[in-house]
Design a protein around this nucleic acid. Structure first.
Length: 439
RNA sequence: GUGGCCUUAGCUCAACCGGCAGAGCAUCGGAUUGUGGAUCCGAAGGUUACGGGUUCGACCCCCGUAGGCCACCCCA
């Protein structure tokens, strides 16, 4: 056994898997650009207080999942690896005075997040998110646009079956009253509740609604619904969001039990998920409105809305569908040689090809020609350049491995020939895991 | 953080009741000194996750640890 392994909950993205991520990132970047979002990059760690105040000190994400890093000279402060992107981006919005930019400020970021929870398939301590934030627009039209953006991303990624859950969780004006009503509803039954539900009653009453305990089903059915108790402003906002979604033809399911786990959410809450899958995590991404966040972080009250979509879970879902199959040659051409010892000429020819813009690698082994061809064939390269005695007349053999044909080509024409016969531009979102199989 | 299942070569898996650790794939070499993925032959690859215990003897039984997975908590 190797003495060192990737830390628990982390993993190496091997080249084939990394290329699937790369393509998702490219889809995300292009889509965000088309909607007018500009890329931002915030640090992977922040003062822990950014998350404690932004995300909420009593949430699971902070209480038990935050990766803390002590300062070198520990003076009671600590940094923390970002568990989600929004708090850091809003911190940057405030720090750089983005309220003086044209509003809303539309930002996107894709990168790793960190949560110290117990790993499972699709749940990692380091995971990747595609994030979108529109700060400074109270909605409701932008809410619908962002949900539509998320749906477009999944479609482009190859997951047409992704469904949307929608809810409104009110705001500071109506949520406290609703929580009080909910607590009052369950309180008389408190002693008969399962232990975990009793704890929720105190700690996070909204969670009672989506209990997985069948014994709770009857009680939950009669519970008050937040969407029936929204204040007028939240109700009007929610109605307008739904109206805009209808115009866009977005199909979604109202889910009154949808509660976002972070404190900063207000009003619109949504989630993208894949129905009917066992194991792994069905939630592929989620987001919502956070009109109170900027204030919590010391800025002027500023509305905002955004989402974070988990790339790891998308790749997992694509793998489960067998949708990552496709082949891609590592290079357009491999330069091999009849003289096993003459690596210098092969290197020189390959170097000239690259300078001309052709993807080419030289076989720098000292193996005989047959072995060099064998390797090239296993790589599924399309063209092989064979260096041999013909070089004395300025010629090389250009072999098309797919067709099995071969022609004598002047070295001077080689790059042009390869450029015209380029077969490298055919790929999907991913590729197979290589000859050995899966990761 | 709670409970459960699992861990044998790079990968997928065998190994009877506790009795000599194996195969396929992949890798490398040969058959084939200037022509490829097939075929045949061969080689290399193991502290049976790690650490203890029981036993004449442990991949196998027991304890602990680590990692993976499943269900929760929660979430992407």
């Amino acid at each position: 056994m190797p003495p060192f392994r990737a830390p628990r909950g982390t993993r190496d993205l091997l080249p084939t898997e990394r290329s699937a991520f790369r393509r998702l990132e490219a889809v995300a970047a292009d889509l965000a650009r088309r909607y007018g979002y500009r890329e931002i990059e915030t640090p992977m760690f922040e003062e822990a207080a950014v998350f404690e105040r932004g995300v909420g000190a009593v949430t699971d994400v902070i209480e038990k999942e935050l990766f803390r890093i002590a300062h070198r000279s520990d003076e009671g402060e600590s940094w923390a690896l970002r568990p989600e992107p929004t708090a850091g981006i809003v911190r940057a919005y405030i720090q750089h005075g983005m309220q003086t930019w044209p509003q809303p400020v539309k930002l996107t970021m894709t990168g790793p997040m960190f949560r110290y929870d117990r790993p499972q398939a699709g749940r990692y301590r380091q995971f990747w998110q595609f994030d979108i934030e529109a700060i400074g627009d109270p909605g409701p039209a932008i809410d619908a646009e962002i949900i539509e953006l998320g749906r477009s991303f999944y479609r482009l990624a190859g997951l047409d079956e992704v469904e949307i859950l929608l809810n409104s969780i009110g705001d500071a004006a109506c949520r406290p009253a609703y929580i009080a009503a909910l607590t009052a509803y369950y309180a008389p039954h408190a002693d008969r509740l399962p232990a975990i539900e009793r704890e929720r009653l105190h700690k996070n009453p909204l969670r009672l609604l989506d209990s997985k305990d069948p014994a709770m089903a009857e009680l939950n059915a009669g519970a008050p619904r937040i969407t029936d108790q929204l204040c007028d402003a939240c109700q009007a906002h929610f109605t307008a969001v739904r109206g805009h979604l209808a115009v866009l033809g977005i199909v979604y399911r109202l889910e009154p039990a949808l509660v976002r786990g972070l404190d900063y959410y207000t009003r619109t809450a949504f989630e993208f998920y894949i129905p009917g899958r066992q194991g792994q995590q069905q939630a592929l991404g989620g987001g919502g409105r956070y009109d109170g966040l900027a204030g919590l972080l010391g800025g002027r009250p500023t509305p905002g809305i955004g989402f974070g979509l988990g790339l790891d879970r998308i790749v997992l879902a694509l793998q489960a569908k067998g949708a990552l199959e496709s082949s891609e040659a590592a290079s357009v051409a491999v330069v091999v040689g009849a003289d096993p010892a003459d690596t210098a000429t092969r290197l020189r020819v390959a170097t000239d090809l690259r300078a001309a813009g052709i993807a080419a690698r030289a076989d720098l082994s000292r193996r005989k020609l047959g072995k060099q061809l064998e390797s090239a064939a296993k790589e599924r390269v399309h063209f092989v350049v064979i260096i041999g005695d013909e070089l004395a007349d300025g010629n090389v053999q250009l072999k098309d491995l797919d067709a099995g044909s071969q022609q004598l080509v002047p070295l001077a024409d080689l790059a042009r020939k390869l450029a015209s016969g380029d077969k490298s531009h055919r790929h999907g979102v991913g590729e197979s895991q290589g000859p050995a199989g899966r990761s």
